[in-house]
Computed example of a mutant assay.
Amino acid sequence: MIREWLPPERESVVKMIGEGILWRLEEIAAMLQNSTVYVYEEKGQIRACAMYDLTSFGDDGTAEIHLYTHPASRNQGIGSALFDKVWTELQDKKPAAVATTYRVDQQPSTDFFAQRGFQPIWGHHFMKYIGEAGPEPVLSVRKFEEKDLDMYIQSQSDAYYEVRKGIDLKPYKLTDYTEKTMTSWKTWILNDMREDIYLFYDQESFVGSLILTPHGEVYDVFVDPVHQGKGFGEQLVRFFVNRTLEKGLQPHLITGTHNHPAIHLYEKAGFQICQTTTTGKRELA
């Protein structure tokens, strides 16, 4: 039976999804909080769920959906029924496109969304660090300050330009996002992330940055193009690994499957790929 979920079921749904995809449970809970959620119930047990959100993807007019079926309940048409349920509702909402993320190390998931017209636009590797602490970086390190905002955004935009262009991920320059998206990004940096952003310097020259999260994951690692190819990326990674191990946590990260220099850097530093996902998109407008 397909029905809307009930608030008391949040914990069990979060746990079920977390067993299938390596996202933090807090991230899954937040995703559910802002979504319209349906579950498939069988003999009093939730066996699958589907959800959609019209605002979470970041591109105006693009809805985001997620679908998960417990392994014991797959190949029974349950996922198809849930997909049809949310898809029918989305047609009334009239988004310009719909996006979803699924594991590509499980072929049935890839086939499922390919059959429904989704085209891959980018992929991600989930990587974990296997090893011990290493040498400390020789670069100078300091915390992000509000006065750094414009420089930080411009440098990150420059650093990701070639990678985004290589996979035709528009806008190629992050600074070309819409005013609404830029405002949201700046708010996220200043309100949510500012205490976790570290800036690295070679003497007085800005080299790069990363976001070191309290749960052992690193975000937005980049080296300014002026300083790429000088080994500074390895020092940023060592800083992240050492600070995370000091907290008794396992360092982990997500990087694009298209970002081969970054993958090489992380593997050389001692990270291993544990899971691979792809985000697919279907245009509707």
Rank of each mutant, 00 (worst) to 15 (best):
M1D: 11
M1I: 07
W5K: 04
W5Y: 13
S12R: 15
V13D: 10
G20Y: 07
L22H: 14
R24L: 02
R24K: 12
I28A: 06
I28E: 06
I28G: 06
A29E: 15
L32M: 14
Q33M: 01
S35Q: 07
T36F: 02
V37K: 05
R47F: 00
A48G: 09
M51N: 10
M51R: 13
S56E: 13
S56F: 06
F57N: 14
G58Q: 09
G58H: 07
G61N: 13
A63Y: 06
E64W: 08
L67D: 02
L67E: 02
Y68T: 11
H70Q: 14
G77L: 07
G77F: 08
G77R: 04
Q91W: 08
D92F: 05
D92W: 01
K94M: 06
P95A: 04
A97Q: 08
V98A: 06
V98Y: 02
A99I: 03
T100L: 14
Y102I: 01
R103P: 00
D105E: 01
D111E: 12
F118E: 00
P120F: 01
F126E: 03
E132S: 12
A133C: 03
P137M: 12
L139M: 13
F144M: 02
E146D: 14
K147W: 01
D150C: 00
Y152R: 08
A159M: 12
Y160Q: 03
R164N: 14
G166M: 13
D168N: 15
L169K: 13
Y172I: 02
Y177K: 03
M182I: 04
K186C: 12
W188T: 04
I189D: 08
I189S: 03
D192V: 05
D192W: 03
M193P: 00
I197G: 08
Y201D: 14
E204W: 01
F206D: 14
G208R: 08
S209T: 01
S209M: 02
L212F: 01
G216L: 00
E217W: 01
E217G: 07
V218F: 11
Y219W: 15
V221Y: 00
F222W: 10
F222H: 13
V223S: 07
H227S: 10
G233V: 01
G233C: 04
R238I: 06
R238F: 08
R238L: 14
R238Y: 13
F240C: 11
F240A: 15
V241H: 11
L245K: 12
E246C: 03
E246H: 01
L249T: 01
Q250I: 12
H252A: 10
L253M: 11
T255K: 07
N259K: 04
N259M: 05
A262G: 07
A262P: 11
L265H: 07
Y266E: 11
K268R: 15
G270K: 10
F271I: 12
I273G: 06
T276Q: 12
T278Q: 14
T279W: 00
G280D: 06
L284V: 15
